[in-house]
Simulated scan of single mutants.
Amino acid sequence: MGFLDIRNVTKSYGPVQVLHRIDIAVEEGEFLVLVGPSGCGKSTLLNMIAGLEGISGGEIAIKGRVVNGVHPSKRNIAMVFQSYALYPNMTVGQNMTFGLEMHGVPKPERDRALADVAKLLQIETLLDRKPGQLSGGQRQRVAMGRALVRNPDVFLFDEPLSNLDAKLRVDMRTEIKKLHQKLRTTIVYVTHDQIEALTLSTRIAVMNKGHVQQLGTPKEIYDTPSNLFVATFMGSPAMNIVPATVVMENGHPHAAITDADGTPRNLRFSQPNLARWEGKPILLGIRPEAITDPEGADRKSGNIQPLTNRVTVTEPAGSDTFVTMTLSGRDTIARMRADAAVAAGQTFEFAVNMEKAVAFDPTTEERITP
């Protein structure tokens, strides 16, 4: 049993079911991120935890107490919205303590909570201003402060950074991470941004079409995606997916692919279990950073495979250079050092870290596991 338990939860609007048997146990102090494309059901699930949406089936429990049908004000949760939802006619201080006032908290206690949270968020100088006098980042801090003063059991964040510009989004991401590390609060956070999901979370639930596709740590989600959707949704650039056939060579399973000229190339797998797929088609998954030049290859890997191929495009990106080639008729991206000596049109010897390769069943699109 978790601190927050989502048990076999479903949600339907008439005959249309939008959430399908969601089971997630969130431990106390955990930072769970719900991530997925628009319309996948992540915000609906968050609203159900908050009590803003009814539950069609299953149970949601907080600290062992089932809250189905319990009014949002009785759940001891706090929510930070995408739109900030600040009262324009109130000062920052009034916005932050309004909820406490409505719950009958005495003024001295409200003032102490306000002072503590304002100091924590470094917004002491803003308390007498109105929301219209604040920047987007300052408004988001106030919205977070309004949640923090209540000292709730669970914090719910609904895409809180999506209205901010790129640099401020990165800055606020760091602030939220620091805040969680300091307070060890239980957080459920919704985003469609997979970079936010990977950097903020202790665990991630990847959602699509009302289903949880995979639940795991950022490393588990990134390194061992459970299916093609997770593999291609998480990571930027996305995981390369290359059609291949499993062949045996010297007693080891290999991925048989073709280069830009159609010449056969074999890459040895590190997973011996793929021998049972001999002669069968698979989809080979390789992250861009697992394909590089020989000098930039991972020295700790025990399975770096050479691959000669023609370069199609190079894209300098400051700290990295992205190199595109063709494998089995698919554009495949390699991530190299900024100073890698590679140019479009040349034949280049790539180094492929096959310890990082994963294989998918092309029929079910599920990862092939040991």
Rank of each mutant, 00 (worst) to 15 (best):
F31C: 10
N76K: 14
I60R: 01
G41P: 03
G41E: 05
A25N: 12
Y13E: 05
M48V: 05
I77Q: 01
M79T: 00
Q82H: 11
V66M: 09
V80D: 06
K42Y: 06
F31I: 08
S73Y: 00
A61S: 14
E53R: 10
P37S: 04
T44P: 13
E101R: 15
G64V: 07
I49H: 02
D23Q: 01
L100G: 04
G64W: 05
E28N: 09
A61K: 01
N89Y: 12
E27I: 03
V18A: 13
H71T: 09
I49K: 00
E59R: 13
S83I: 05
C40P: 14
L86W: 12
G54R: 11
G93V: 07
A50D: 03
S73T: 15
V66P: 00
G36P: 09
R65V: 13
M79F: 00
V92D: 08
P106K: 15
A61T: 11
E101Q: 13
I49Y: 05
Y87R: 04
T91I: 14
G104K: 07
A25G: 11
V26D: 03
G58E: 11
Y84N: 02
V35W: 11
V66L: 08
G14N: 12
V35A: 13
V92S: 06
F31S: 12
F31E: 14
G51T: 04
P72I: 07
S73V: 15
G51Y: 02
N95P: 15
G14E: 14
E59T: 11
I49F: 03
E53F: 07
I60N: 05
A61C: 10
V33Q: 12
M48L: 05
G69I: 06
N47A: 03
K63H: 06
V33W: 06
N95T: 13
G14M: 14
I62D: 05
M79I: 11
I62L: 10
E59V: 15
G39F: 01
K63D: 12
T97R: 01
M79H: 06
M79V: 15
G36Q: 11
H71I: 08
I77G: 07
P106G: 02
N47P: 09
E30F: 00
N89D: 09
V16T: 14
S12I: 04
A85E: 01
V80F: 09
G93D: 08
V16G: 00
G99T: 14
G54A: 10
L52T: 00
V92I: 13
S73D: 13
L34D: 02
L52C: 11
N89F: 04
L52Q: 10
H71E: 15
S38T: 10
F81P: 06
V26F: 01
V35Q: 13
F98H: 11
S56Q: 14
V67C: 11
P15D: 12
V80W: 08
I62K: 01
I60E: 03
P15I: 09
P15Q: 12
N76R: 14
L45D: 12
L45M: 12
P88E: 06
R65A: 14
N89E: 11
I22S: 04
A78I: 09
G29Y: 00
S56N: 14
G99S: 13
H20R: 09
H20L: 12
V66W: 02
E59Y: 03
I77K: 02
P106L: 14
